[in-house]
Amino acid sequence: MRSAQLRSLTLAGLMLLAVSGCSGGEKSVKSDEAHGDSHGDTHGQADAHGGTGGAKLTHWAYSGDEGPSHWAQLGGDAATCASGARQSPIDLTGSGRPQMSKITLDYLSSNATIQNDGHSIKVVPSKGGGLIADGTQYDLKQIHFHSPSEHTINGRRAALESHFVHQNTKGEYLVVAVLSNVGVADPMLAPIWTYLPSDQTTPAAIPDLLINARDLMPAAEEFFVYSGSLTVPPCSEGVTWMVFSAPLSVSPEQVSAYETLLGSTARPIQARKDRDVLTIISAG
């Protein structure tokens, strides 16, 4: 599909494009194609790294011989990391006149668990609500973090990126992302950060704390929206991304606390190719 055609898409049309596999013939990522308990489950998928017919991708990293430049050689469906036509993350740049779209952020305050899975810090609410985009309900599955940010905005990388992973009843994925620059401490993130697990563990309950995803997002509901992929092996495509255009702020200490545990956890920027990026403003 040509870029000129994409500019006429609504948010609903872009979501359809994300799961249609119309460029490159890639399948959309669904719960049965997931890549697992480690960072795969970090993006909300069910068990086991690797695709439906692939080997489990239990060993991968952000540097060295198992780093991003080697992901495509890990086996299973991970070849998509190199061959895919719509990979994430990308640099987000001005995309013309903003469009209005019906988006309802309907999150609930919920108990949650926290886990250091070796690739990220993952927070899983027991019943976190979700969002409605152009009439389709997407339930919040979990929240995880990357440092530095994976996406860039006009070439600028932030200190932290939060991913809010959602899924609809068809098994299709939508990820809301929030970038945070170094500045003052994020008061809503601070209570979660007090429970950062120092070692790789199974999920542990966060005591005496209810988590509402909306508290961890900017107030202004304006987004960059595009069709992309998972940002970890097997890099499956068919993921709708909604990245808040306004950043939040985190303190150097909050960034340091994360990086001390996990180091750098960001995939390099991928080629945008023929994709357009829409600017969407919520119509409420």
Results as ranks from 00 to 15, higher is better:
His144Ser: 06
His144Ile: 03
Phe145Lys: 03
Phe145Tyr: 12
Phe145Leu: 08
Phe145Ala: 09
Phe145Ser: 08
His146Met: 00
His146Ser: 10
His146Gln: 10
Ser147Phe: 06
Ser147Pro: 09
Ser147Asp: 13
Pro148Cys: 06
Ser149Met: 05
Ser149Cys: 03
Ser149Leu: 02
Glu150Asn: 12
Glu150Thr: 06
Glu150Asp: 14
His151Arg: 09
His151Gly: 07
His151Glu: 14
His151Ile: 01
His151Ser: 07
His151Ala: 06
His151Lys: 08
His151Asn: 14
Thr152Trp: 00
Thr152Glu: 13
Thr152His: 09
Thr152Asp: 02
Thr152Ser: 12
Ile153Met: 03
Ile153Cys: 01
Ile153Val: 13
Ile153Trp: 05
Asn154Pro: 10
Asn154Ile: 00
Gly155Lys: 08
Gly155Ser: 02
Gly155Ile: 00
Gly155Asp: 05
Gly155Leu: 01
Arg156Gln: 15
Arg156Asp: 10
Arg156Glu: 15
Arg156Ser: 12
Arg157Asp: 03
Arg157Lys: 13
Arg157Glu: 12
Arg157Ser: 11
Arg157Tyr: 06
Ala158Lys: 05
Ala158Glu: 07
Ala158Asn: 08
Ala158Trp: 01
Ala158Arg: 09
Ala159Leu: 00
Ala159Arg: 01
Ala159Thr: 06
Ala159Met: 02
Leu160Ile: 09
Leu160Asn: 00
Leu160Cys: 07
Leu160Pro: 03
Leu160Glu: 08
Glu161Tyr: 01
Glu161Pro: 01
Glu161Cys: 06
Glu161Ala: 04
Glu161Asn: 02
Ser162Glu: 01
Ser162Val: 15
Ser162Phe: 10
Ser162Lys: 05
His163Cys: 08
His163Ile: 09
His163Asn: 15
Phe164Trp: 09
Phe164Asn: 06
Phe164Gly: 05
Phe164Gln: 05
Phe164Glu: 01
Val165Asn: 15
Val165Glu: 11
Val165Leu: 12
Val165Ala: 13
His166Arg: 06
His166Lys: 04
His166Ala: 02
His166Tyr: 04
His166Met: 01
Gln167Gly: 14
Gln167Leu: 13
Gln167Met: 15
Gln167Trp: 04
Gln167Ala: 14
Gln167Pro: 07
Asn168Lys: 09
Asn168Ile: 10
Asn168Glu: 07
Thr169Arg: 06
Thr169Gln: 08
Thr169Leu: 12
Lys170His: 14
Gly171Trp: 04
Gly171Lys: 07
Gly171Tyr: 07
Glu172Gly: 03
Glu172Val: 12
Glu172Tyr: 10
Glu172Ala: 13
Glu172Thr: 10
Tyr173His: 05
Leu174His: 01
Leu174Pro: 05
Val175Thr: 13
Val175Ala: 03
Val175Asn: 05
Val175Leu: 10
Val175Met: 07
Val176His: 04
Val176Leu: 10
Val176Lys: 02
Ala177Val: 14
Ala177Ser: 15
Val178Trp: 00
Val178Arg: 04
Val178Asp: 04
Ser180Met: 14
Ser180Trp: 08
Ser180His: 14
Ser180Phe: 03
